[in-house]
Structure formats: structure tokens, C-alpha cells
Design a protein around this nucleic acid. Structure first.
Length: 430
RNA sequence: GAGCCCGUAGCUCAGUCGGUUAGAGCGCCAGGUUGUGGCCCUGGAGGCCGUGGGUUCAAUCCCCAUCGGGCUCCCCA
């Protein structure tokens, strides 16, 4: 096709009407289920202070070091949020949400931005939904979060997922572990990948995540975080696993699971799907007991997860799960002639006032073209009006599904429509 | 940041071993049915064959660059 004057940026896509129906259906499920778990929605700006993201996620993480969209205006630094945990934590501190009392249970849905090379299941503007439970150190909080995450995919019908969990321990455990790990790694460094060698000083735990072949033998023999866990971290993790068992949620313990953000402590988890290809992580999360203090709040334990919506929808496609309820319209008013068109305008308002959806042609097209349009819009009924009907004050009311029609007064038609609401025969897919 | 593949109508894709007016299906518009959709038939609109340059008598086709897209590594949702 010819060169376009303007188009979306690399890795960013328009969601067109035939797509957005599916998105709305997904969002509806998320909101409904979040409400069941008694989570409340939080919405924050897409632009955040650069420092928040850098401090929050960690300077050395991939996201911060090479994937953030940042710009400056005057002497203020802005970033497009790459994730929601830090922004929610910021909001919690900024608005003293602890003063609302108890544990804050928040959910969000929205666009995130990362300057990566796009591929299947990875875009520069993508969408996540997720939960944050702030103010509880109880393993029950971890479990509620994990259980919601698993529940959502179950509800949608994505069954063949795998839950992987690990504990990265509290601060003491991590310091102790880093020490043993570095002591172990040091003699092997010369034979290891360049990436791992750079990580050694900065963040040795990330080496365990390496997929470089030359690192594998070293990693296999490496000491595990599990062996360095403090007593309380061990108890916490054991309780999480026990509760998962109690809930009948299958999981596999992966001692090598280390997640991408520095703020994680204790429980870390990931939900992966074999239906996704290279980018197989559907969702992931964990506890972040140090983040809120790190960004200037009171020491506050918290746990959450984030899920990629594009990936969820890809999985649905792969599995043949249809979220799109399809188009629907209650009434299409077909008009012939200027007076009929003018007559229709207030009738539309009346029908809509009854809670039904209604539209008409705006172009003065032929009856046939309007019928075709009504069909395309998946209209359940059409009301046909021309000079003939106006003169007799009786209108043609056509049932598009049954291909039957009769001549009725407007009141009779409205009465029928009213009845349809009661019978739930209309497509009110809010 | 690195590698591989691909850019022909709105969409999915043929095609030209380089050679006069570039095709199909679907979609769109109209007619067949002077006031009736979904099926069928007929017709129509719609392409500087992504863009720029090069080679050539001649380029949509070959070469280079560029832009865009897809996939992979890395990493993540």
C-alpha cells in the first residue's frame, strides 16, 4: 500500500471496533471478578516522575536501564509508566491511603509502555491488569493475590497454565544468599557468559536467570536461595505453599525464579502458558515489602501481580475461546423521505430512554441500503416509516430474525419493545 | 542491542524466468426486486505493486538504501 502520511509508532496498535468488543468483554470479567474478591479500582496518570520508576524498580533492571520512554520538559523528568506497582505504591504514599484503614486492596487496568523490540506478545504500548494488596504481611494476602490470578484464567477458560513459585526471602535472607552465591560463583566466572560476569557485581541473583548455555552447568550446581532463607522467610513461604495445597491450586516450586524488578521480597510467582510461544509469561508478581519505604512511605508490606492482556487474548485465540459477544442493536429505524427522517429523531430518543439501543441512517439512502445496514448492525428489529405510514399513523415493525413484520402504531411498537426488556431478549451487553 | 523473514486493492493472497491496459476471493457501492436485509446473479469504485536511488532500451519483478511489519535471542506482561 502507498506510504501513509501518519501512522502509529512502532510497537503501538489501534484497537478497532471489531477488536474492542473483545477487550470490553475481558475488562468486564476482570471488574466483576475483582469485585467478588472485594478489590477497588485505582487509576493513576500514565506519566510518572522518572525518579519513582528508577528508584522503585531498580536502576540496574532491564526495564529501567533500556526500556523506559522518558522525556524532559522544563526541569521536570517524565516517564511513561512501564508497570503499575510503583505508581500504585506512590499513590498510596501520596494520598495516605493507610488512613483509609485496614489493608488496601486495589486493582487496575490500563496501558503500560516499554521501549522494546516488538514481537508476538510484546508491544511498546501494551495493557496490564493487576492487583496490589498493601498493608499486610500475612501469607493469606499472597494467597488471595495468587488465587485471584489463577481464578481469572480459569474463569475465562485458559486451563493449561503453569504456576511457578519461589521465595527470594527477606532482606536478611537475600544479603546472606548474595554472599554465599558470590563466593560460589567467583571461581567459575572466567568460564561464564559476559552478561553473567557483568551481573556478578551488580545483581548476582539475576545470573540464575541466565539462559546462556555456558552458564548452565554453573547454575545447576549453584547454592539455592531456599537454603539461605531466614526462619521467618521460610515459615512464610511454607505457609503460602500449604495454603495453595489447601486451595487445590497446582504449582511447581522453581528455585531459579527471580523476577525482573528489584523490589521483590519473599514470595515470587509467575503464570506461564504453553500456548504463547516465546513470550510465555501470562502474569507474574510477588511480595514487595521494601518498596513503599524505599519511595518515602512508612515501612509497609505489600504483594501484587500484573497480567498482560494482549497475551491473555492471544491465549484465547490459540484455544478458540471467543470473548467477543458480537455486534448487537435493538432497533434500526428505516426512513423514506424527509418527513419520515424528521419523525424518527425523537422516536430514537424515546427508544433509547427505555434502555434500548437504536439508530437510523444519516445519509438518506435507499430502503434497501438501510435494510442492509440494519442487517450488518445485527439489528433485532427494524421500524420502517415512509409517507404511507405517517399518513395512517401505523408503522411497519419487522422482526429481523424471524423475517416477519406487522403494521402497528408507535405506542404498540414501544409496548412490544418494553416487553422485550422484561423478557431479556435484548442485547444489553453492558 | 543482535539475527532471520516479509512488504502487490480495505482484508487474505495470486502474478510477471524484466516487456504493451496488474488479477482473484472476501469486503464496500449500485442494479436485478419503482417501499424491505441475510442467499443468488450482474456491474462499479478502489493499486505511482511501501518509499528513494541504481542497473537496463524497459523495473512491481534484479541490486542498494530507507521506512514499515513479522519472528527469534536477550528480557519481560
Amino acid at each position: 500500500m502507498a506510504e501513509l502520511k501518519y501512522q502509529t509508532h512502532h510497537g503501538m496498535t489501534d484497537l478497532l471496533p471489531d477488536e474492542t468488543r473483545k477487550w470490553q468483554a475481558l475488562e468486564q470479567i476482570i471488574r466483576r471478578e475483582a469485585a467478588k474478591f472485594h478489590f477497588e479500582e485505582i487509576r493513576t496518570p500514565v506519566l510518572e516522575p522518572t525518579e519513582l520508576i528508577v528508584r522503585g524498580l531498580g536502576q540496574l533492571t532491564d526495564i529501567v536501564s533500556k526500556e523506559i520512554f522518558a522525556f524532559q520538559r522544563g526541569d521536570t523528568n517524565y516517564v511513561l509508566r512501564p508497570e503499575m506497582t510503583a505508581p500504585v505504591a506512590r499513590s498510596y504514599v501520596e494520598h495516605r491511603l493507610d488512613q483509609r484503614g485496614g489493608t488496601q486492596k486495589l486493582y487496575y487496568i490500563g496501558p503500560m509502555f516499554r521501549a522494546e523490540r516488538p514481537q508476538k506478545g510484546r508491544q511498546r504500548q501494551f495493557h496490564q491488569f493487576g492487583l496490589e494488596v498493601i498493608g499486610s504481611a500475612d501469607p493469606i494476602a499472597d494467597i488471595e493475590v495468587i488465587s485471584f490470578m489463577v481464578h481469572i484464567y480459569q474463569t475465562i477458560g485458559i486451563r493449561n497454565t503453569r504456576l511457578r513459585i519461589n521465595s527470594v526471602g527477606d532482606l536478611q535472607s537475600r544479603e546472606a544468599y548474595k554472599k554465599t552465591l558470590k563466593a560460589y560463583l567467583k571461581p567459575h566466572l572466567p568460564s561464564m557468559s559476559e552478561l553473567s560476569r557483568t551481573r556478578f557485581e551488580k545483581n548476582p541473583m539475576r545470573i540464575l536467570d541466565s539462559k546462556e548455555p555456558e552458564d548452565q552447568p554453573v547454575i545447576e550446581q549453584a547454592p539455592l536461595i531456599g537454603d539461605s532463607l531466614s526462619e521467618s522467610s521460610r515459615e512464610h513461604f511454607n505457609m503460602v505453599k500449604k495454603l495453595l495445597d489447601d486451595l487445590g491450586i497446582d504449582f511447581e516450586e522453581d528455585p531459579y525464579l527471580v523476577r525482573g524488578m528489584d523490589y521483590y521480597t519473599e514470595t515470587a510467582f509467575e503464570l506461564i502458558s504453553p500456548d504463547l510461544g516465546a513470550q510465555d509469561a501470562l502474569a507474574g508478581g510477588g511480595r514487595y515489602d521494601l518498596l513503599i519505604e524505599e519511595i518515602g512511605g512508612e515501612p509497609t508490606p505489600a504483594v501484587g501481580f500484573a497480567a498482560g492482556m494482549e497475551r491473555l487474548l492471544i491465549a484465547c485465540d490459540e484455544l478458540g475461546i471467543e470473548l467477543d459477544p458480537g455486534k448487537s442493536l435493538d432497533l434500526y429505524i428505516v426512513t423514506m423521505g424527509g418527513s419520515a427522517r424528521e419523525w424518527a429523531v425523537p422516536v430514537l430518543q424515546q427508544v433509547r430512554g427505555m434502555g434500548l439501543s437504536a439508530t437510523m441512517d444519516y445519509q438518506g439512502r435507499s430502503l434497501k441500503a438501510q435494510m442492509k445496514d440494519a442487517n450488518r448492525a445485527a439489528a433485532n428489529y427494524t421500524l420502517i416509516v415512509g409517507d404511507h405510514e405517517l399518513a395512517r399513523n401505523r408503522f411497519t415493525f419487522r422482526d429481523m430474525g424471524a423475517s416477519e413484520e406487522e403494521s402497528l402504531s408507535l405506542d404498540e411498537i414501544l409496548e412490544r419493545m418494553q416487553k422485550l426488556i422484561g423478557e431479556g431478549r435484548t442485547q444489553d451487553k453492558a
